[in-house]
Computed example of a mutant assay.
Amino acid sequence: MARNRYYDGPPSDHFDGTRFFNPGQASTDRGLRAVLRWKLAGAAAKWPVTVPVTPAMPRPRVDGLSVTMVGHAALLIQAAGMNILTDPVWSERASPFRRVGPKRVTAPGIPFEALPPIDVVLLSHAHYDHLDIATLRRLHAVYDPLMAMPLGNDAVVRAGVPGARCVTGDWWDRIDLGNGVATTLTPANHWSNRWPSDTRMTLWSGHYLETRAGTIWFVGDTGYGDGAIFRQVGERLGPPDVALIPIGAYEPRWFMAAQHVDPADAVRIFTDVDAGRALGIHWGTFQLTDEARDAPAEELAAALDAAGIPRDRFVAAEPGGVYHFGRTPVTSR
């Protein structure tokens, strides 16, 4: 049996002693034959080489609640005086290699040098488009933030960022982040790896933030499955004021459905938890799958219309967009 070099803990309902898994859900494992079937079909839409971005220049601190889209799953959450980054990636590629792998078509929505002081980094899982060691090294060198993540990911971070301040948790664990802010790690239907040999040896999750300015749920990468985990979030933690829900990287469905929601499923998550507002994330920065770059935003609008939900309640976030939340609908910049 393969040895888990990242995490050594007792078996549970989602850990078999070596690998984590999604209990009761379709398998996310995909063999070489499935990958070749996908890639040889040649169905990937052509993306633009670059898309212009107007960068944001955030204030040092925000008393209320605002979210600035950096790109993909990287967002700056400013809440009640705290500055929090999710899955930060400022690198040019989402890859272990500098010259190979998905290249960003949008510049970061915040120049790294324009970041406010970063207090906390939230990591959802170990895939390269979410856990970028080069970016974490830069953040550690300048801000030394607390980094919160699911089980096993701390081994990856500490190996690449010596001295990083890491805290870990299992699904449903609540972690105090300081200054009246806490995160609860929420289940997701996904998987993880850094190399083919370590598939599902680190856990994946979302983050449900409690702050004095409101609650924010960063869903993390996930398939919809039977939807049970999303209903549990609403039941156990309450409807979030703001949900950050992935809407991209979903085609072809036969390959991706178990691990990535499409816009229609994203709207189901939104209604399952009765979120107040939502931003669509995980689209338009790195071409990971077959759909056209703008398809997630277009299909999100159609899914909202079909569900009878006003479009201003669930907006596809654009890099550089600054979204302010309160009692009125979401506004940009």
Rank of each mutant, 00 (worst) to 15 (best):
I245Q: 03
T222I: 04
Q287R: 07
R231P: 06
G109E: 06
G223R: 03
P150K: 05
P23M: 05
P162A: 10
G101L: 01
A79G: 08
V62C: 14
I281C: 00
R19P: 02
G109H: 01
K39N: 14
F286R: 04
L185S: 05
L279A: 03
F270W: 07
D226F: 05
G225Y: 04
R174A: 13
G238F: 09
S66E: 15
N83V: 05
D16V: 00
L209N: 03
G31H: 08
T50G: 14
V105W: 00
P60G: 06
Y323Q: 05
P246A: 10
D63V: 14
W283R: 08
D87E: 11
V261T: 04
W47K: 09
L304F: 03
D305W: 11
D265L: 10
R268F: 07
M149S: 07
Y143E: 01
E251V: 12
A228Q: 14
V62G: 11
L244C: 07
D241L: 14
V105A: 13
G320N: 10
V167M: 07
G280E: 07
V142A: 14
G321R: 07
Q25F: 04
G180W: 00
L203E: 12
D63K: 15
P296T: 09
T328M: 14
H190Q: 11
D119M: 03
R33P: 12
R59Y: 06
G225V: 02
A141C: 10
R93A: 05
G321T: 02
D170R: 11
D290W: 06
I77W: 03
E298Q: 15
A159Y: 10
H260F: 10
H190R: 04
W172H: 06
N189K: 10
T50M: 13
V261C: 11
P150M: 02
D221K: 13
G223P: 00
G31I: 03
R327I: 13
A303R: 01
H140Q: 15
P296E: 08
V156G: 06
V53K: 00
Q287P: 09
L76T: 05
E235N: 14
I77E: 05
I229Y: 11
W38G: 11
P150N: 04
D198V: 06
R99L: 15
F325A: 11
D16A: 00
P187D: 09
V330K: 07
G71F: 09
A297F: 01
A266K: 05
R93W: 09
Y250F: 15
V121Y: 00
D63I: 13
V330H: 07
F314R: 03
A73Q: 14
V142F: 13
M149D: 04
W191M: 14
E291N: 03
R268A: 12
G169D: 04
P117Q: 02
H207I: 08
H140D: 11
S205R: 09
R268S: 13
L146T: 05
A141Q: 15
A80W: 00
Y323K: 06
T215D: 01
